[in-house]
Amino acid sequence: MPRYEFSPLGDSGVMVKLGEVIDQQTHEKVIQFYEYLQEHPFPGMIESVPGFTTVTVYYDPITLFDPLDDILPYDRAVAILEQMSQQISNTHSKEYRLVEIPVCYGGSFGPDLEVVAKQNGLSIEEVISIHSTTEYLVYMIGFAPGFPYLGGMDERLATPRRSSPRLSIPKGSVGIGGLQTGIYSIESPGGWQIIGRTPLSLFQAGESSPSLLCAGDKVRFRPISEREYDNGEKVY
């Protein structure tokens, strides 16, 4: 039975904490609770957002107020969430969705590939091979629309961020920042070492599920050639 800790996030949110450290076990609890909420939204619930160790639930205090009993909307929200937490069986762990992301490494798409190789005493081929044989876990989506926080990068690829960030990094760029790897979902400034680019769109406004990835997915990168990248851009 997982322990749930509730605390207010402003006057219209409850933060539900499901663990103290970023690990697979806490992540599974987060996903389980988040998915339960998706399937069983309560009246007055606005939305829920999964984090590394938390699920944040936004609610409308007006809807959750009943003048007849005068219970504080926050207390009512917590009571509902507490009851829900008892409904969740943590017996079976869910099947993961594995998403393959084609990446054209190096060249103009990955200007920092050599930096990452040199920093770690590896050849370029070794960097690509290590980066593309690992299975990564999507902990959460945030920072920018569709941007995945990925866990599981091989420590042999760890590279410090650039000392001066680039003003504009094209969308689809795959980068390494410290112990993390990620994909820029929209064009933005950033300080990560850029090692390649995917022709896939990680975010498309207007779709019913606008983000290619969801918290709880697994990701694997597949090296592709520049020609495949060009074809890919037309396909995806």
């Binding site: 938390t54 944040t56 920072f143």
Partner: peptide
């Protein structure tokens, strides 16, 4: 701190000690 959801009105304090009130276009995390 471990990154988590932030809401409108959150007053966060980065390492320089100068507070920021998050408003409508805030990031989600």
């Amino acid at each position: 701190l471990i990154s988590a959801a932030v809401t409108i009105g959150t007053i966060q304090v980065p390492p320089n000690g100068q507070p920021i009130i998050l408003m409508a276009d805030r990031q989600t995390i």
